[in-house]
């Protein structure tokens, strides 16, 4: 069986990305050239059920969305640590660690994640229904 250099396995992935984006871009471009263009003021206006738009649409929105963004960053990064751990978990005893070493370590780690979740929960940030939470 033939083997190729390590980095070559990513080559198809890169190609796929290029092709996919080219395809998507091509679609946009093609439809631009194919479709007819007969613009009018009404047509090109913002769609707001036929009314003229009121106010700026990029104004402020609920701070909860920001909260979700922040929580996501934190918890996602925490989740990232679990994948390498999961990959190596079953090999740990073979590396001279005790049977429950991996589990214990993750228990501590998840305890922190859990505390974080509990805190956020208790602070009412996960409560979307009422504004009791202090935001």
């Amino acid at each position: 069986m033939q083997t190729y250099p390590y980095l070559w396995q990513y080559l198809p992935l890169v190609l796929q990305i290029v092709v996919a984006i080219a395809l998507a871009g091509g679609m946009v471009g093609a439809s631009f050239f194919v479709g007819k263009h007969k613009n009018s003021r009404t047509k090109a206006g913002t769609y707001e059920c036929g009314m003229d738009p009121v106010g700026d649409s990029r104004g402020r929105f609920s701070v909860r969305f920001y909260m979700v963004a922040m929580l996501f960053i934190l918890f996602d990064v925490e989740a990232v640590f679990m994948l390498p751990w999961a990959v190596i978990f079953r090999k740990l005893p073979g590396l001279g660690y005790s049977k429950y070493f991996g589990f214990n370590e993750m228990l501590v780690y998840l305890a922190f994640v859990g505390v974080g979740l509990f805190y956020v929960w208790k602070k009412g940030i996960l409560n979307w229904a009422n504004d009791k939470g202090d935001l």
């Binding site: 913002t46 769609y47 738009p53 649409s57 990029r58 909860r64 969305f65 963004a69 996501f72 996602d76």
Partner: peptide, 21 residues
């Protein structure tokens, strides 16, 4: 630049990233 679109995308974004966890 449309309120429906903005709200929709905000909802979609926060929903997607929340469930991604």
């Amino acid at each position: 630049n449309n309120k429906y679109a903005l709200l929709g995308s905000l909802r979609a974004t926060s929903q997607v990233i929340s469930y991604e966890l």
